[in-house]
Design a protein around this nucleic acid. Structure first.
Length: 482
DNA sequence: TTGCAGTCAATATC
DNA sequence: GATATTGACTGCAA
């Protein structure tokens, strides 16, 4: 009965408890041929039976931490063939613990650390030692991710940042060697981690890697080594290029990949990066506040008015929505960590896609009432932009109810944007910009009024109600999970 | 088709 | 030089 139920109505991963996930992990392992059959397909190597495949996954982690784990592990791996549910689950469990615990490592390992992306990060001279691919390939990390328990992404990034800064290690190096990501991505990730339950499998990967790295007793040394080697390689190259009288040779720091080929011809192919002018951004923001999900027509209009490509406008809206959403996440986390727990799973966020429903009403209402002066209006402004636009936000819950809807939305096609209004608001731009991307200042302002969590919850409720109403009016049967 | 997640990589800022 | 920002792109899902 349970099986039938599970097969016909599987819950999304994010809704499952640890225990609830276990059957799916089993299924996945089974699908991979790792359960029930003897041999692990990908990892190949020695390890025969399934159980071993699972336990072998632990190795990279294990080395980083836990001595106590060694017992279960060995015991598990001792029982060769029997891939009884018992043992299998046991290993899954211990794996889980391993990823979870930032335990103080015991002994250095040689290989299995930071599972390395398959690309050769550092330059030519790969150190014979550190990071790279332990025997565990990408699949392994994916399995790890799949089996990983909920990780505290915020905490992880916090610790990573600490370690990096304490040891004067750069994001670029860390990203390229440990995460397989570029500097920009790392920066973004560290500054705005999403809560675990919001992440896709792929999105969780860097966090698992970070956790593994944190667990690695030699993490810092290894990175330092890398740094040294990079420097060496760089110096070497520089010298040789100088003596070669090759004037150009860009100082492509250690990482050879940075400029794969000829820099010259590429220049021509590259299309210049679009940089939106402040007024344009301002106009787009205004448009967004009126309609977070503009119709193609609106987009067209906007593009024409601003003299931008429609694709640029589309991209801008996508990026803006998604970035605002992320701001929201951290706020939730921060609010949650300040006191209440469980905030991270708020429905608003949970409902995923920044509910189109939240659009018009929430932000517009506020924007509409926004007046330049009074303390009342001023505050909602800076905060409002951040919080409200995307998902129904706290204040929106109150103000939006009254003002929302038609007003602004109706006017959407004629975004006050372009010139007139944008210029008038120009002086205020800095603050709104800052608040938009969650700069501390904005947070401060918010704090003064505080109880964000409460507000958010109110907003969530408001959003749910609103969406229900919408759904009702549409007569579309919609399933809601609260 | 549309929206989103995740990323890259150019550019801005510190 | 390191880090932050942000426009664009890819791949996936509904």
């Amino acid at each position: 009965g349970s099986v039938s139920d599970m097969l016909s109505r599987p819950k999304p991963w994010s809704k499952l408890t640890q225990k609830g996930r276990e059957p799916f992990i089993r299924m996945q392992l089974w699908l991979n041929g790792e359960l029930g059959q003897g041999v692990l397909p990908v990892q190949g190597q020695q390890q025969g039976p399934v159980l071993h495949s699972v336990t072998s996954l632990q190795d990279p982690l294990q080395q980083g931490c836990v001595s106590s784990e060694s017992t279960p592990k060995t015991s598990a791996s001792c029982s060769p063939a029997p891939e009884s549910p018992m043992s299998s689950s046991e290993s899954v469990k211990s794996l889980t613990e391993l990823v979870q615990q930032p335990c103080p490592p015991i002994e250095a390992s040689k290989d299995g650390k930071p599972p390395e992306p398959s690309d050769p990060p550092a330059s030519d001279s790969q150190p014979a030692t550190p990071l790279p691919l332990s025997g565990h390939s990408a699949l392994s990390i994916q399995e790890l991710v799949a089996m990983s328990p909920e990780l505290d992404t915020y905490g992880i990034t916090k610790r990573v940042k600490e370690v990096l800064t304490d040891n004067n290690l750069g994001q670029r190096l860390f990203g390229e060697t440990i995460l397989g990501l570029t500097q920009g991505s790392v920066s973004d990730l560290l500054a705005r981690p999403k809560p675990w339950h919001k992440l896709s499998l792929k999105g969780r990967e860097p966090f698992v890697r970070m956790q593994l790295w944190l667990n690695d007793p030699n993490n810092v040394e290894k990175l330092m080594d890398m740094k040294r080697m990079e420097k060496k390689a760089y110096m070497k190259r520089r010298h040789s290029s100088v003596s070669d009288s090759q004037p150009c040779e860009p100082p492509s720091v250690g990482t050879e990949y940075s400029q794969g080929a000829s820099p010259q011809p590429q220049h021509q192919l590259k299309k210049p990066r679009v940089v939106l002018a402040p007024e344009e951004k301002e106009a787009l923001k205004r448009a967004y506040q009126q309609k977070p999900y503009p119709s193609p027509k609106t987009i067209e209009d906007l593009a024409t008015q601003l003299n931008l490509k429609t694709s640029t406008v589309i991209n801008w809206f996508h990026n803006y929505r998604s970035r605002i959403r992320r701001e929201l996440f951290i706020e939730e986390i921060q609010a949650g960590s300040q006191g209440q727990a469980g905030a991270s799973d708020s429905p608003s966020a949970r409902s995923g896609r920044a509910a189109p429903s939240s659009e018009g009403d929430s932000c517009d209402g506020v924007e509409a009432t926004e007046g330049p002066g009074s303390a009342d209006t001023e505050e909602p402004k800076s905060q409002g932009e951040v919080e409200r636009e995307d998902a129904p936000r706290p204040d929106a819950a109150t103000s939006a109810a009254a003002a929302p809807g038609e007003g602004p939305a109706a006017r959407s096609s004629a975004p006050p944007p372009s010139n007139s209004s944008s210029s008038s608001s120009a002086p205020r731009r800095p603050s709104s910009l800052q608040s938009l991307f969650g700069l501390p200042e904005a947070a401060g302002a918010r704090d003064s009024r505080d109880n964000p969590l409460r507000k958010k919850k109110a907003a969530n409720l408001n959003s749910i109600i609103h969406r229900l109403e919408k759904a009702a009016s549409r007569e579309e049967p919609i399933e809601w999970e609260f």
